[in-house]
Amino acid sequence: MPSAETTFLEAIRQALQRLLRERSDVVMFGQDIGAFGGAFKVTAGLQKEFGADRVFDTPISESAILGAALGMATMGLRPVVEMQFSDFAMTAVHQLLNNAGTLHYRTGVAAPLVVRAPCGGGFAGGPFHSEELEAFFCHMPGLKVVYPAFPADARALLLAATLDPNPVVFLENKYLYRHVKEWLPAEWGPTTLGTARVCRPGSDAVVLTYGAMVHEALRAAELVHAEDGGEVMVLDLRSLKPLDTDSILAAVAATNRVLIVHEGWHTGGFGAEIAALVAERAFHLLDAPIWRLTAPDCPVPFAQELEKAYRPNAAKIRDALLELLEH
């Protein structure tokens, strides 16, 4: 069935499978990823196909997982490790910040490893299973941070991340796993990190976003178009570090109005970085202040009523866009 649509989750699984098949240096480990296939089943069947030497369970020891991945990476392997939830990576953050992130700068030794980290909320996961931590990861020198929104991108970027000679945090928004499907082309692309993609053209405003919010922004752009004919561009950043500044600046030049949307916290969020970039490099192009729509500065709440108020969505993006277009 070559033309069937593929879920985000299955696309990632295909990338992992291809990596294991084609590269003998790739190993995968994490909690419950072996026979069980992982908490979300992203690694389902991989241990069976490739053996417990290459795909294996670990104790509940995030520091050891990340530290061991680093050691392996320096010795010629390419570990692709899974955090059961990205939230738990924070129990081992020194391994990323101080060990993996600084290694090449200090010693000239490369550390090609990938940390797959399921993230994001919208499903009553509460404060510890819903966090959006990309700003933390992006703040660490020496790490790359990839955050795809579509199955084809996830598949290709995971391959590219694994082949990259640096530590890469690969963020998998859990909401996308089973909600987003598409037909996958035979050709795998993009083949490098750091390229954004216009997923909806437009000339009146641009939404700069990534992850699950790309899909909310696309819905919002449709709503705006239906309501007042406005043409809103949606730029999916796909990779936060390196960041495709050229595409961002081109989008600003084409639209003159900017809305930045992310699911992570406001203060010090990645949106602040994008806003600073636009202000520094494209201030003269702006017809309105740069707007940010983010989660507020509170822990991710559990109750549905609260989480709905907490998390940006298409309706909130639509409201912000209508105001921005009016400005």
């Binding site: 009553a124 709440p301 559990f302 109750a303 609260l306």
Partner: peptide, 15 residues
């Protein structure tokens, strides 16, 4: 996730 529960709906289940 009730407003008058131990975590006032801010956290859920066993937390």
């Amino acid at each position: 996730g009730r407003a008058n529960g131990p975590t006032r709906g801010r956290d859920g289940n066993i937390h």
